[in-house]
Design a protein around this nucleic acid. Structure first.
Lengths: 219, 219
DNA sequence: TTTAATATTTAGGTTTGCCTAAAAAATAAT
DNA sequence: ATTATTTTTTAGGCAAACCTAAATATTAAA
C-alpha cells in the first residue's frame, strides 16, 4: 500500500510533531532522515497529494488522521519486532533498532496481530518506549526522569529517552537495564550529577547527561 | 547490499536453472516475476555487470557462484520465516508464502542464524521444501511422488511440488497435511487417479494432478 | 531453404526518490 | 527598515526498475 520511504517520512514527521503545535519543519525532517531539504520538499508535495499530510509552502507540515494512523502502525510494528528480537532471539537492546527499521515495513495485519499476542501483548519495547495497541492508542507512561528524584528515593528504570547504541552500551556497562533498581544517595548541585546505588550493590556517580535520559518509576 | 528486485531475479533464475543445463531464458524469468521480457533484458545486463550472472545475448543466463550464493541465502530466509509463521504464529501453510516474500529480504546475518536455532534448525519448510543450511547446502530429499507408488504401499506426505494456495487449500480440505499417512488402495489406469485411505480413516479418490504433486516417503 | 512464428533485444519514455545549484521567502540582526 | 542569514522551494538531472513499440535473432514450419 505505502512504500518504505513514505512510511519513513510519516514516522519522522510523527516523531517531530510530538509536543510542538506547529508540526515538523523541512530541515528537521531532512536531518532525521539523513537526506536533503530539497528532497523533503519534493516528497512533502507527493504525500500532500495523497492526503497523508497538510502542507502549505514554508509553513511546515502536520499529519492528517490517515497519515498519523500509518505512522503509528509503523511505530507499533517497529517496537513489537524489537521485543521479539530481545525476548525471543536474545538480541541486546542496543542492536535491535537497525533490524526493526527493516521489519517495521512488512505488510500483514495478521502478522502484526499474531506477533503481538505471541509476545504477550507487551506494553513497552526494550527501551521502555510505549507500544501503541491495535487501535493506535499508546499506554500511559510515567515520564519522570531520574534527575527529578529526591535523595533517598528508590526507583525502577522504566525507559530511556536517548536510544542511541552508544548510550545503551554505556548503561549496559554500568549494569543499568530496564527494571534495574536505583537508590539515590546524593545529588551534586555543582554539575547535576547523582550518586546512586545500582541493584543494591555497586555505587556509581551518574552525570546529569545520563540522569536526564533515564525514565524511572518511584517505589 | 542488494535490492529486493535483484534478490528476486536471482531467486527466480536459481529456481529456473534447477535441472536444466542451459540456465534460464528471458521469457521464463519474465513470466515467473510477472514482468515483461524487455524489463528482464535490462536487468540481466545490470546483474551481469555486477558479476552475479553470466549473460550472452540470446543465450539465456546462468548464475555465478556469487549470484547463486545470494539466491540460496534468500531461499533459506524465505523458508525459515515460513516455518516461523506456521510453527510459532499458527499461520496456515497456504498463507505464509506472501508474507515470507517480504521477510526474505531482511538483511541481518545474526537474525537469520538466531531464527534458525530458535526454530530448532528445521530441515524442511511447511511445504516440505528443503531449507539450505548456513553454508548453502540443501538437505537430501526423497523425491518420490505419490503417483509412482504401488498398490498397498503406505506412505507419509513429505512435501508438495505445487505450492499454490489453491492446491494447499484443497489438500487441507481433504485432510492431507505434512506428515499425513496414506494407504494406496487402487490405481485407475484410465485417468491415473488413485483411491487412498487418509490417516487410516477417510477413503478418497485423488486425481493424477494431485498425485503427481505430492512428495511421499515409503514406509 | 525460404518463410513464418517466436524469442529477445533496443529505443524511447515513465515514475519514484534522490541529488546540486540557484532562486525566493522568512526570519534575525544591525 | 534595510541588510544579512537561514530556511525552503524550484529547476534540472540522475539511477533504478518498469513499460510499449519496433527491430533483430533464433527456431520451427512449409
Amino acid at each position: 500500500m505505502y512504500t518504505f520511504t513514505e512510511e519513513n517520512y510519516l514516522k519522522a514527521i510523527h516523531f517531530l510533531s510530538q509536543g510542538s503545535e506547529k508540526g515538523a519543519t523541512t530541515n528537521a525532517i531532512a536531518e532525521r532522515l539523513e537526506t536533503k531539504a530539497a528532497s523533503v520538499s519534493d516528497m512533502l508535495k507527493k504525500l500532500s497529494d495523497k492526503d497523508l499530510l497538510i502542507y502549505k509552502k514554508y509553513q511546515g507540515v502536520k499529519l492528517t488522521a490517515k497519515g498519523k494512523e500509518i505512522a503509528i502502525k509503523t511505530v507499533r510494528k517497529h517496537r513489537l519486532w524489537e521485543v521479539f528480537l530481545v525476548d525471543k532471539l536474545g538480541f541486546g537492546w542496543e542492536e535491535v533498532h537497525e533490524v526493526a527499521e527493516q521489519l517495521e515495513h512488512i505488510q500483514s495485519v495478521k502478522l502484526t496481530d499474531r506477533l503481538d499476542s505471541y509476545l504477550g501483548n507487551p506494553k513497552y519495547d526494550p527501551h521502555g518506549d510505549p507500544i501503541p495497541d491495535d487501535a493506535g492508542n499508546f499506554p500511559k507512561r510515567t515520564e519522570t526522569t531520574l534527575e527529578e528524584c529526591e535523595i533517598n528515593s528508590e526507583v525502577i528504570i522504566r525507559g530511556v529517552k536517548d536510544t542511541s547504541p552508544e548510550f545503551l552500551r554505556y548503561l549496559e556497562k554500568l549494569g543499568i537495564g530496564l527494571g534495574a533498581k536505583l537508590m539515590v544517595e546524593e545529588k551534586e548541585e555543582f554539575d547535576g550529577s547523582m550518586r546512586v546505588k545500582i541493584n543494591s550493590t555497586s555505587d556509581t556517580s551518574l552525570s546529569a547527561a545520563v540522569c536526564t535520559n533515564l525514565f524511572v518509576k518511584q517505589l
